[in-house]
Nucleic acid binder design. Structure first.
Lengths: 250, 250
DNA sequence: GGTTGTATCTCGGCT
DNA sequence: AGCCGAGGTACAACC
């Protein structure tokens, strides 16, 4: 019944019916057909592929190309039932199913490789350079947006969500700032909704808008400027260069 | 210089400096540290992971959990340079780089498994049940939207892109229909832009709007109805059940 | 090649 | 648990 053991370098000769959780990654290279029935239906004709089964039961079917996305897969948590090939048949059937009833049926025709490996817990990825960091950086350098500008607060709350930065310009006027890594139409629409709402508040109005991003797509710029929103392209490296080390996220 | 051979079941004992394209998948299980420098910077501390190198040079770093997304990766096309561990050092360095100058540096501390496999070309995934199919189905059943409605055309062209369906209601009024699998705010904004444009055309105006989806998020519904756009939840299975077999996409 | 819109998106944060 | 926004989004279709 045990389909793999910790630190095993190859799969046991008589692999069982149920995949056990917590025993590492199993890697198969095999000719297989795969059918997914769930949020959509999809079918993979017979071909040689890499099948990876992770400790949480999730399954990935990779071809020798494409990017990191598998041809087909099942996300955890899910259960894997393995039916051994019968004597007169030349294939095994794996039935992978999750709580929502989505199914992955893998028919294994010929196995080229089969091994299992214990990996342990991963410390995880450390990121830098994303929107959250841009927001922190710009919040400490609102002068980039205009002389004598000051920060009111980050994540300024509104009924439809927080505005990235709320500032005061040199004349004391309120300015809502939307920050993106890449400025596209969606971001302009988002800022527009904020501005419409904020300008209904007599204590704040008039509120002007700034759309700030490392890169602003032409269509987004056109839409923004047509609505009286100023566009500012941010230089991440320059902002980072002037950064006070004590303000670092990491 | 040759790092793997076709149909090899294990990596050659003296793997070289350059990964050769077109020779299948290489799978490593090893303790490694990984650094990505590109659109962001990211770091993976030392841990045991699965490293998959595909024929096109792309690299995937998988942990024993999470979903199909690798912890870190490099998309093709890219080149992989492998520097052998020197005698007194206990690690090898892989340098993966793409045309844009993004880099993945993989330091291999200890190898638990190393094998290569020729897979051949994959016939690819056959899908069903996506938005294109919903559009075809609804186009043939516009009566779902209202009695005596008729289809003017699918993909009705406008200056800012095609409207999914253009219909006439029982009174001969024009109706623009936006179809999504999941109806969210973006879809409402998209339809709003179409309606604004279409209503500037005196030959068409007035044009009303229908937002049709298998599932409509509350915020999207609120926004749509506030703008006078009717929301319709589609039953995919019911539409499919009444389908003329000759109209199938597949 | 750039742009647009979808995705079995995935992933994280927050309510 | 659901909702919402961001992503090294990836990916395909279309212009």
């Amino acid at each position: 019944m045990l389909s793999m053991r910790a630190h095993a370098n190859s799969a046991p000769p008589n692999s069982g019916c149920v995949h056990r959780y917590g025993y590492g990654v199993r890697i198969l290279v095999a000719t297989c057909t795969v059918d997914y029935v769930g949020r959509l239906t999809a079918h993979l004709p017979a071909a040689q592929r890499v099948i990876m089964v992770k400790a949480d039961g999730s399954v990935l079917i990779h071809a020798d190309g494409g990017s990191y996305k598998p041809l087909n897969w099942m996300s955890p948590p899910c259960s894997l039932k393995e039916k051994e090939a019968e004597a007169e048949e030349d294939h095994a059937l794996w039935l992978v199913e999750n709580k929502a009833g989505e199914q992955l049926r893998i028919t294994i025709h010929e196995v080229q490789h089969d091994s299992a490996h214990e990996l342990g817990i991963d410390p995880g990825l450390q990121k830098d350079g994303v929107e959250a960091h841009l927001q922190v950086l710009l919040a400490t350098h609102v002068n980039v947006l205009g002389d004598e500008w000051s920060l009111v607060r980050r994540e300024f709350p509104t009924a439809i969500g927080p505005v990235d930065l709320m500032c005061k310009d040199a004349n004391g006027g309120s300015v809502a700032v939307e920050i993106k890594r890449r400025g596209e139409i969606d971001g302009v629409e988002q800022l527009t909704r904020y501005l419409e709402l904020l300008n209904r508040d007599p204590l704040l109005a008039p509120v002007s808008g700034v759309f700030a991003a490392q890169e602003i797509k032409p269509q987004a710029r056109t839409l923004a400027e047509d609505r009286g929103i100023r566009c500012v392209v941010l230089d991440y490296e320059a902002l980072k260069g002037t950064e006070d080390p004590s303000l670092r996220l990491f």
